[in-house]
Write a protein that binds this DNA or RNA. Structure first.
Length: 288
DNA sequence: GTCCAGGATCGGA
DNA sequence: TCCGATCATGGA
């Protein structure tokens, strides 16, 4: 179990099993964290970004230990432990994924490639917007568009960072106000989402207690939200580990390893984690 | 110039 | 139900 050490300049979480910041922030679930030339006081790589309206930085000396900067232990309990899914037992999930046999078995290489990933628990509204903007787009440009959206509409916080704008704020911008983010046809989709959320036509809070297919259907009422975007929103923003987005990369995996078809229910409620491991494996291959 | 990117929508078979 | 064209933008 993890142990929390409140140090002078950071919180140190130890006793983790197979935790990888690089995989977590490099697996296409989150677009607001980057490494820079800056290092932490011990010389380790620093991941900086904004989540839940707060600037935050993480580093890790090894796969069992995590350091959190600029956060109190109260914030750790209230936000970051949940954000990083440290309240979730991934050793247990791995066992459940291994339990899928036969034509539904998860390739062992995919499991090893993805080990260390955590499905983040991000803000639902920000996650919805991020994946609306992700459609038919590439990751570097998705990051640029989101950064630009935050810059023109989000409240500034320390160090040149900005909060993600509220739905109401995006409504006020309107379609013309969104032009500077250069999101193309996706801007109209973003605006529709903002309008439907502020008007209560789509109630994000209510999605938590819905069955998966019903929650997907509800999100599909927003223009520009299809099954894939809805599944990403539920998986990364609502910690719905049973949600499994199927994009071009996962389709490739399905053709390669599951030509007989795949029953996602074989992963015991963790189809989303399995999907993420498969995505990471196909997209980046085995770690060197 | 062409192709592609964590897709969705539309019209027409 | 399924297919293809189209959507806006920028980087390779």
């Amino acid at each position: 179990m993890e142990k929390i050490d409140v140090r002078e300049d950071c919180l140190e979480i130890s006793g983790l099993s197979h935790f990888s910041l690089r995989k977590i922030f490099d697996c296409g679930q989150c677009f607001r964290f980057e490494t820079s030339e800056r290092r932490d006081p011990w010389g380790d790589e620093l991941w900086e970004g904004v989540a839940f309206g707060k600037y935050i930085a993480f580093s890790q000396p090894d796969e069992t230990c995590l350091r959190i900067f600029h956060a109190t232990s109260e914030e750790y309990q209230q936000i970051w432990r949940s954000f990083l899914a440290l309240d979730t037992d991934y050793a247990e999930i791995e066992q459940r994924l291994l339990a899928a046999k036969g034509k539904n078995a998860l390739p062992i290489e995919a499991l090893e490639a993805g080990r260390g990933i955590r499905i983040l628990r991000q803000d639902p509204w920000e996650t919805l917007c991020s994946f609306i903007l992700s459609q038919n787009n590439n990751i570097p440009r998705i990051k640029k568009i989101i950064a630009s959206l935050c810059r023109i509409a989000g409240e500034p916080i320390a160090g040149g960072y900005y909060r993600f704008p509220s739905a109401k704020k995006i409504c006020h911008l309107g379609i013309d106000g969104l032009e500077p983010i250069r999101a193309g046809f996706r801007s109209a989709y973003l605006l529709d989402a903002a309008q439907k959320v502020t008007q209560g036509i789509v109630n994000l809070e209510s999605l938590y207690q819905m069955p998966l297919d019903q929650a997907v259907e509800s999100l599909e009422n927003i223009r520009g939200v299809g099954k894939k975007v809805a599944m990403c929103t539920l998986l990364f923003g609502f910690q719905r580990l049973d949600a499994f987005p199927v994009d071009v990369w996962v389709k490739r995996v399905l053709e390669k390893y599951y030509s007989d078809g795949l029953d996602w229910s074989a992963f015991g409620g963790y189809a989303g984690v399995a999907q993420q491991f498969l995505f990471y494996y196909e997209r980046w291959g085995v770690p060197s």
